[in-house]
Design a protein around this nucleic acid. Structure first.
Lengths: 149, 149
DNA sequence: ATCGAGCTTATTGTAGACGATTTAATTAGG
DNA sequence: CCTAATTAAATCGTCTACAATAAGCTCGAT
């Protein structure tokens, strides 16, 4: 008697698939820089805000140190960032961009920007979809965990 | 002179965040069944289509055997599915639902369905957002990899 | 009958994601 | 001023995700 749940009618599944498509899109677009998508958004956040602690980067990306520590170690090994314990507060690790990262900044902006043109969405459509997805995110975030048990 | 890319203006980032919120939402809603979201959609697909090979399940979910084999082994251990090599074609592994899974079907539909009401989107809004996200997915899927290099 | 092309599943290696725990450093309270 | 609580990062365990590779099977052509 219960209404069946069809996968292709579920918004969660559409978002799940779209996220994987974006991941594939960026893995192609970023291959020449050997950056993954999570590494790329870490870089974007540092371009935007400058040197930050691991915690602060995590707040901009909704990621915790369990994800960021190994990711940033890989980015450090690849020469994008440097990590240094703060002298003022030795609990913090400050993450800053290397010369390579600042030198490549405009090229990366330009290359990724040109890749985005292949999406071929007019700005208004792009903005409208983004606003709706953001509202889904906010609605979900507002649900207390207890409601779901 | 290149236009900076602001994280919070990127559709990819909105979708990335929304996908993680949905993951959290379902991890709460499915906790009582000890199912993860990828396990849940595997179950949904089997409820919908009945016994299938690993390959066919993968086609409904856009996942390959590298993801599905270990995931399904866990679901088998937890008593949701059984895996058996096909007698007709011994390359295939047929995946079918256990009695537990069919017995729980309506309860799971109902519980997840009731959790969805907390999203509080009218059907038309839900459908409109879903259609737009699907179109993003399709647009991305249509871009040949070579364009992005 | 058998050989090989092509298909299906399994395995491996790398990278994310996140909850839970641990360790170290800082702050606050009595 | 010292201990308790808080905070930050790292670590660990578990679960995805996917590319690349391996292994085994089927079927058709010879």
């Amino acid at each position: 008697m219960t209404k069946p749940i069809r996968l292709n009618e579920q918004l969660c599944f559409s978002i799940y698939k779209a996220q994987k498509q974006f991941n594939h899109f960026y893995s192609q677009a970023l291959a020449k820089y050997k950056l993954t998508y999570p590494q790329y958004i870490t870089l974007l956040s540092l371009y935007e805000h400058g040197t930050m602690s691991v915690k602060e980067v995590g707040q901009t990306l909704n990621l915790d140190s369990g994800t960021l520590t190994p990711l940033m170690k890989r980015m450090e090994k690849d020469g994008w960032i440097s990590r240094k314990r703060s002298a003022q507060d030795e609990r913090r690790v400050d993450v800053s961009l290397t010369k390579k990262a600042t030198d490549m900044r405009d090229e990366i902006y330009e290359h990724v920007g040109s890749c985005m043109t292949y999406l071929r969405f007019p700005d208004e459509v792009y903005d409208a979809i983004k606003a709706q997805v953001d509202s889904v995110d906010e609605h979900l975030a507002a649900i207390p965990d207890e409601e779901l048990q």
